[in-house]
Write a protein that binds this DNA or RNA. Structure first.
Lengths: 188, 188
DNA sequence: TTGACAACCGACCGTTCGGTCGTATTTTAC
DNA sequence: GTAAAATACGACCGAACGGTCGGTTGTCAA
């Protein structure tokens, strides 16, 4: 019975998310998808190659073919932020961050994939925001928003608290709207 | 030649910080401190027992015998926040978060130690802030401050960027001072 | 000088790790 | 129907993992 590539990748994502790169073994992954370890190596040359696949899938799910209802920058921003926040709250951990912490110079492909993953997040958010504010402000707000969401995820992971995530979402949206308003009233 | 317990613990911290719980091996630790693996097991019953030791040491360094210059709550808050931010920026990773992500139900002692570690951080910050504002506000601000610092650390880890950390420190201090001011002017 | 004790080490245990290879089975294309 | 290609598997590799144990070395008080 053929096992879909996407099944392998999304299962690998679950394992990386919950156990990290070093903690997730190829055997665990094989068991989880109902294959033997050797069969995994037909699809992926090595463990490290799973990392870009996992992050690309996640990126695709987050930003791929997203249709904004109104076409307004703020609606689009809120939509993306809430999607990310919901995912992080539900899963309790961020795959990207877990892989960022879990990769090193010994796994250069994985390390590069992690950089690209976060860079893409920042670029996407930044391009939405820059419709309503200068690009340098947009970039900082995009960065701070992602940082807040990552940090709030830690409290979900450690204490199971979801309040910090709610505040992170609210404050990030407020910050973005304030910055957009400040643009039209430059000196104030 | 006797090797100090603190040497072992702080070296274990470096390893946990850079490679995570699963990625740091007892052999690596033994090599790093100039011992053989078997000798480590004289001091620590198992790998997991290193985790509370590492986090206790870190907690001690962060909050132990800190003497505030002025006795003002805001000076004390700034001092602690900047100490944490400096450490996170220099090391590029947070041991606590890496261990939080790297421990599970299979390592209950480590998991508990991580919870205690973050709870202690929140409690300490919260108690400083609650000198100038209601306790529930203090607790939220303490949480958000820690979340911001953790999130900013991710950008240090991934891109080597320190700007996000600077903004995190500045915004957290502003937020705390605003909340303190709002207390004396309740309805505004 | 000796005895006791803490520190340390080498060898070893069973298990798991990432990864390889030859082969069997199923699907697809003509 | 049959050949080729895709899919999956069992058996295996050397290395590394956490952890144990019997024995050697160094320190120091009596």
């Amino acid at each position: 019975m053929k096992v879909m590539r996407e099944t392998i990748v999304s299962t690998a994502r679950e394992l990386f998310r919950s156990r990290g790169y070093a903690g997730a073994s190829m055997n665990d992954l094989a068991d989880a998808v109902g294959l033997k370890k050797s069969s995994l190596y037909v699809r992926f040359p090595n463990k490290e190659a799973l990392v870009p696949a996992v992050l690309d899938l996640t990126l695709q799910e987050t930003f791929g073919q997203r249709v904004s209802a109104s076409g307004q920058w703020d609606d689009e921003f809120v939509e993306v932020i809430e999607f990310i926040a919901t995912t992080l709250t539900d899963r309790g951990r961020c795959v990207g961050l877990h892989l960022a912490y879990g990769t090193s110079d010994e796994t250069p492909i994985a390390k590069h994939a992690v950089r690209a993953f976060f860079q893409a997040h920042r670029d996407h958010l930044s391009s939405i925001l820059s419709r309503a504010m200068p690009v340098d402000v947009a970039r900082d707000i995009a960065t701070d928003t992602l940082a807040r969401l990552e940090g709030a995820t830690a409290f979900v992971a450690i204490f199971g608290e979801k309040d910090a995530m709610k505040r992170a979402v609210r404050l990030s949206i407020e910050e973005a709207k304030n910055a957009a308003a400040a643009k039209s009233l430059p000196s104030r």
